[in-house]
Design a protein around this nucleic acid. Structure first.
Lengths: 223, 223
DNA sequence: GTCTATAGAAGGATAGAC
DNA sequence: GTCTATCCTTCTATAGAC
């Protein structure tokens, strides 16, 4: 059976933080800013949310995954929703940051720049697939004001793709008939859908997936 | 703001079956086989699950959306999980059925056949985006035996894509260096990711989206 | 087949000891 | 800062009247 055929598996898979699914600090970029205990809680929360969704996760699960009692969560976070917001915010901020660095913008060739953006975004969703899954699947559980803030980050990220495609078209490096919005959307979809089917045990590394999607991108925009 | 930027919005959006999000019988293909009341319950369940997820939906919501008391659900379905299974099963069976008809298989030209498959699958996810969203996002809440059954249907659906790409490569109609599994996966991703961002109020019709994705598919496999 | 009422369990969050 | 114990709400599912 292919990874792709699986989709999201039933929640029976352990998300109590005791199994092999336990996350490390670098699985949640930005979590270094937290103390050790709140970081453990955020990592446990991310694993639980990814496996069972926000509403399918209990505060007891999160605390147990961090090796704490149920009440300990509330010493570090005022609510379950705020723990979700922290996970989602860190994930979104990291995704944006890797696409907007000066090293990307320094690439003068539009094809190279688009390939680098697609490759980086794809690698992020594979390498950080647990957190990225929460970022994509659990937005609906955010409080409206937190959702609005996350939306602002997403827009900036998506805009990077649109600008990269548009500048290639404008400069004549890409085909003139490329539909900027639709092609950008397609490239974003290819990366994001990784969170649905990607499994680290699979045969393809994040780097290989990034290269493949970058190749697809170039095929879509060049003659 | 683009539709794409929104992702899944907060659960505040009404899913009580009273708003404009109320589903019609043809929004859930196969629901005609049910009597009027169980069909109303399934349509309400689909709308609730799509908006708030399985665990974020209460049996009271589902019943209220069908205009019934909380207890009425259990006259027609033995559990909330079984209502989910019915929605997911009907959605998956319909998706498979539209890709495996004799009218598709009669298309002799590999390019035409692939374009038709991609177009139909894309149209399905747009036209039936509410049910399709449940089919993609809530699989994890299924009981293991129900999940296994749905997986079998998914595999058959995915196999249609692989065969369509592979036969085009084998016949020489497509490029010889096409990576069958990866390109099939990418085309499936493009259709499925619609359930994340598609909104019927948007500027593009399901038919336009189908045509666009079919065009992308041909560009990926032909020289 | 639908209702009202409720049993029984579980969840989010808090109180207060240490 | 962590614990145990628990409050209070909400949830799934059932009982029993009509």
């Amino acid at each position: 059976m292919s990874q792709l055929d699986q989709g999201a598996a039933p929640s029976a898979r352990a998300a109590d933080g005791t199994g092999p699914g336990r996350l490390q600090a670098d699985d949640l970029p930005g979590s270094e800013r937290y103390g050790e205990v709140p970081r453990r809680l955020l990592l446990s929360a991310a694993a639980c949310f990814a496996a069972n969704g926000f509403h399918g996760t209990t505060t007891r699960h999160i605390a147990a995954g961090a090796g704490l009692s149920p009440a300990a969560l509330y010493v570090h976070f005022p609510s379950k929703e705020l723990a979700l917001y922290e996970v989602v915010r860190l994930g979104h901020e990291h995704a944006r940051s890797i696409l907007t660095g000066p090293d990307v913008e320094a690439l003068a060739d539009p094809g190279e720049r688009l390939a680098e953006i697609v490759s980086r975004y794809t690698r992020f969703h594979a390498r950080h697939h647990v957190v990225a899954r929460v970022c994509q699947y659990d937005l609906g559980a955010l409080a409206p004001e937190h959702y609005a803030e996350v939306l602002r980050i997403r827009q900036a990220t998506n805009e990077v793709f649109r600008v990269a495609v548009a500048s290639g078209v404008d400069s004549g490096a890409f085909r003139a008939d490329v539909d900027v919005r639709r092609v950008s959307r397609a490239l974003i979809s290819l990366a994001i859908d990784l969170v649905r089917w990607y499994r680290p045990e699979g045969p393809e590394s994040p780097e290989q997936l990034g290269e493949f999607n970058a190749g697809l991108a170039l095929r879509l925009v060049t003659a």
